[in-house]
């Protein structure tokens, strides 16, 4: 049964020791994320945005406080269970795409299904279905080096969906893409969010993201500065001048 919150953090603190100084990258962050939400974590570099993101994704252990994914306390999990969580429950999308260079688009998408113990035929079927979903049905057997940045990110998105995760964590997914390609990727993420009901958590600088987010969490100095609902938001993202001419 689907519980209301997919991710909850409680009093999250992350300290880094530099010489004799202790730096608090996160200083008591409590955040509840609803199932099926599209949430953006915004903040300047060094604000603790990435640290929060890593903690939520189970990529880094907090110094204190806890993270619950589907009501499971991450701190309680051992290495195997964490791996299982990463494989089945969380899909990751990276700024630098991070496709495995030696594998084709299809093999990249199929890899998580291999880890999940799916048979090859099933996995391939699933891979093709997903690549078609992200609009790359015609490029199944291309290597990442033969794809454009936007296409690589689409493959990465397909890969993140391979095992039907309940959460997709996107770390600056548009950071390495030009304006239009970035917009396409954001639209794709939004449509996946709407159609598949997957929760999307994205750390970003990209103001284009605001437009599609249900909520925006602003992080400053390791604390949540404010959480805004989109309907309360009155920002005109607007097209850049000369945008139309490009189409």
């Amino acid at each position: 049964m689907a519980n209301e919150y997919v991710v909850r953090t409680k009093d999250l603190v992350k300290e880094y020791t530099m010489g004799d100084q202790t730096l608090k990258a996160l200083n008591g962050v409590s955040l509840d994320i609803y199932r099926g939400e599209y949430i953006s974590i915004m903040g300047p570099s060094g604000s603790g945005k990435s640290t929060l993101f890593n903690a939520v994704g189970g990529l880094d252990k907090p110094s204190s406080g806890s993270v619950f994914i589907n009501d499971v306390d991450m701190a309680q999990l051992d290495a195997q269970e964490l791996a299982y969580l990463r494989c089945h429950t969380i899909g990751y999308i990276f700024q630098t795409f991070n496709l495995i260079p030696v594998m084709t688009a299809l093999e990249n998408v199929t890899l998580p299904t291999v880890f999940a113990g799916m048979s090859t035929d099933e996995g391939v079927e699933r891979g093709i279905e997903l690549l078609e979903l992200v609009g790359l049905g015609g490029r199944l057997h291309h290597k990442p080096s033969e794809l454009s940045g936007g296409q690589q990110q689409r493959v990465a998105i397909a890969r993140s969906l391979a095992n039907n995760p309940s959460i997709i964590l996107a770390d600056e997914p548009t950071g390495n893409l030009d304006l239009n390609t970035g917009k396409e990727i954001i639209d794709l993420l939004k449509s996946l969010n709407k159609d598949q009901g997957v929760t999307i958590i994205s750390a970003t600088h990209d103001l284009k993201m605001l437009d599609v987010s249900d909520r925006i969490v602003w992080i400053r100095d390791g604390q949540i500065a404010k959480v805004e609902e989109r309907k309360d938001l009155d920002i005109r993202i607007g097209e850049m001048e000369g945008q139309e001419a490009l189409h």
Partner: peptide
């Protein structure tokens, strides 16, 4: 296919593998 983690439990099945 993946099954959702049981909402109540801390029990997560361990079934990650890489065939030879």
């Amino acid at each position: 296919m993946s099954e959702p983690v049981s909402a109540s439990g801390t029990v997560i099945r361990r079934q990650i593998k890489l065939p030879f």
